[in-house]
Write a protein that binds this DNA or RNA. Structure first.
Lengths: 248, 248
DNA sequence: CGCCTTCTTGAGATGACTCAATGGTGGTGG
DNA sequence: CCACCACCATTGAGTCATCTCAAGAAGGCG
């Protein structure tokens, strides 16, 4: 396991509020007073290079993060050390919050690409949460949303074929990235795709070898092409149908 | 699908606070003032007979519940209607809370045995949550705990064998029931077990047929015996080891 | 240029599934 | 009280999806 490549970028912390990402980002709805207060406590921006770990399963969870840029993979390891991907975190996502009393991270977070995050101390979050019900509600909603996707993952792993799982994952990522998608309006949609086939397999519960075969089949069927760093969706309706994906 | 057999038992609502179940039950920590307030709004006790549904996936979530007595199975169905069990709810568990803005249940809840629940209106819960940060915190923790088990389920389904998954499920139920376990101190532990093999399979992501074969193997190996309505654990350490179960 | 990661493909093994049939068990009504 | 029925558990035989092991090809980076 690679050692932690996280480096703090501090000062020069142009405040978190300017994070130009997605609307669900935590602390985008918070008014300036709170932001000032949060800033007055210790919190900052961190840079993380690809393959570095932001935190690891079982470690004491002192910080939670908002992802500014880059992709992360959240995963848990089994007893043999094999990874099972839980989800991909995209810019704007709030990760690492631990409400549990034991205060340990329940999963690991590894950078897929270079990434920048904004860190908050759990203790500060708890304090803010106790003071403002709106924030509490917001966090509850974020948790609930993640819970729903986790339940979907259970359903998918238990009941769907390899094709369906991969198609669903691609469809989900495409859907989440859609606001930023380039060259839409055409028949072929394309998106950046920094995952290796091995990671794709880890997220779908498949061997890298079998992941490759499935991708080949999807390519042969004219559904999608998965190259290094880029996925092109040739037949979106078909992909959605195979993956049984519907907006949640 | 069986029609809803839920019947309201109202009045005669000896208050929820007397629910003599497990320490994590919601509204056991709440002081009397809040309870009175909650009672003054509409909420009551409901009786549900085995195989009846408390709520179903996709329906508007008007109510959340605390389980008084009996067992429930929470599950989601795939496109072919096959069930995937998400978890078993035991007395004291808080279920059906929907923080999501869409306000739909994310899964179905079916009674495994006859059951009694205490229902709360979501709107009232939200109001209480906005008023008292302690409750918000408590709900957040319940969510987080469930989230952790859901992530474990993902790991299990993707990476563990049928034996391991079944052993883990039995170990987990035994652990959760342990406070009430009878005849401990002996080498053989026993607990009530109202699940059919089919339900066991739904919870482990297995066919009923294969579930049966796994149970036979576990029996032949002297690990546990699963009969109608009762499970006897012959070799607890071995069961824990097979299921890789450790207190979470 | 050479190494290292990632991707690709083949061949064979296997865990879990499907289909199908039989045997128990408990409840219900005659 | 018994006979029937529905549901559940059990077992066999054969199939299929996915895994494992193994080796080669293709890029990228120092």
């Amino acid at each position: 396991m690679k050692t932690n490549k996280m480096t703090e970028v501090r000062p020069a912390p142009t405040r978190c509020a300017v994070c130009p990402v997605r609307e669900k980002a935590l602390f985008q709805v918070i008014n300036d007073d709170y932001l000032h207060e949060a800033e007055s406590r210790r919190f900052g921006q961190y840079r993380l290079s690809a393959r570095g770990h932001l935190f690891e399963e079982g470690a004491p969870s002192t910080m939670a993060y908002t992802l500014f840029s880059g992709w992360l993979m959240l995963y848990r390891s089994d007893s043999e050390g094999a990874r099972q991907g839980l989800r991909v975190a995209l810019p704007g996502d709030f990760i690492g919050y631990a409400a549990l009393t034991d205060g340990l991270y329940g999963h690991s977070a590894m950078a897929i690409t270079d990434a920048v995050v904004c860190g908050f101390r759990q203790a500060d979050l708890h304090a803010m949460l106790d003071r403002d019900a709106k924030i509490a509600r917001h966090i509850t909603e974020i948790q609930a949303r993640y819970l729903a996707t986790c339940e979907s993952k259970v359903l998918g792993l238990a009941r769907k074929s390899a094709e369906q799982r991969i198609a669903h994952l691609i469809a989900e990522l495409f859907h989440r990235l859609e606001p930023h998608a380039e060259g839409d309006g055409e028949r072929a949609h394309s998106m950046p795709f920094p995952l290796t086939q091995e990671m794709l397999g880890e997220l779908s519960g498949l061997t890298p070898v079998h992941t490759n075969r499935v991708l080949r089949r999807l390519r042969a069927d004219g559904v999608m092409v998965c190259e290094r760093q880029r996925v092109t969706i040739l037949d979106l309706p078909r992909l959605l149908q195979i993956g049984e994906f519907n907006e949640n």
